[in-house]
């Protein structure tokens, strides 16, 4: 049985400006929000610009804001996003420059990751002495940018390093037994680094890979707080 869904898609073209287009789609509720967008592209508007690749939450390229919340539309089912006769408001990710329609320029994400050295860290799995349920794998980050879009702090501080890069920094320190290069330390330990986070936890809420960036930022903050205290005591001694 198919549902009637209204897609309201935010469009942008450099020559035409911004607008919202409405499309009626007949689609099974078990299919995904991305399936609906592809149907619109295939049957109603071939000019609709969107990005996708794997269709199973592994490439991280299709991230969107659907009904006000960041999701990967390739794994967001229609029935989990709305009801029969309902509406899906689809926007590009926030806090990124929009190239066209639903496609954003991911450069702000990768520029931040480059400051941390674009780490692909290992080993995967819990470290010695770490309980499995305490372990959240930064290695699972698919670099989709949902965390950067959802963060209310990035919304007002474009220089803020942001959740993914800070989580990466914490994991780098963790697997290197506390060591961190001076360059990465300088990027992390400043007013636009880990101290800027205001604990809204929205990055962890929307993360499709359970990386828990907010938890990692807090762990990094605890580490830096103890490090500063240690230096303070050392300086007095």
């Amino acid at each position: 049985m198919s549902w009637q869904i209204t897609y309201k898609i935010k469009r942008y073209h450099p020559d035409q400006g911004s607008r919202v287009d409405t499309f009626q789609v007949e689609i099974e509720p078990e299919r995904t929000v991305l399936d609906g967008i592809e149907l619109i592209w295939a049957k109603q508007d071939r000019t609709l610009v969107f990005r996708h690749a794997c269709h199973h939450a592994s490439c991280g390229s299709c991230g969107l804001v659907v009904n006000g919340v960041e999701v990967l539309p390739c794994i967001k089912l229609i029935q989990d996003a709305t009801t029969d006769g309902g509406t899906l408001e689809v926007e590009p990710l926030r806090n990124f420059p929009v190239v066209a329609d639903l496609v954003v320029d991911m450069a702000p994400f990768f520029e931040r990751m480059q400051l941390i050295g674009m780490p692909i860290v290992g080993p995967t799995g819990p470290l010695p002495g770490q309980e499995p349920d305490e372990y959240t794998a930064f290695e699972n980050c698919i670099e989709c940018g949902l965390c950067l879009s959802a963060c209310p702090v990035v919304a007002t501080d474009s220089k803020y390093l942001g959740p993914a890069a800070l989580a990466a920094a914490e994991r780098v320190i963790e697997v290197s037994e506390g060591r961190l290069s001076d360059e990465v330390l300088a990027a992390v330990d400043n007013e636009h680094g880990l101290w800027r986070c205001h604990a809204a936890f929205e990055c962890s809420e929307v993360c499709p890979s359970n990386v828990d960036p907010a938890g990692r930022i807090m762990a990094l903050r605890r580490r830096m707080t103890f490090e500063r205290l240690r230096r303070l005591v050392g300086a007095k001694g």
Binding site: G68, R94, A155, T156, A200, F201, E202, E205, A214
Partner: peptide, 16 residues
């Protein structure tokens, strides 16, 4: 700058 998002908890988690 989107200061309005500082005051928009709708559809968001308890943290927000």
């Amino acid at each position: 700058s989107q200061v309005s998002r500082w005051f928009a908890p709708w559809k968001r988690g308890l943290g927000t």
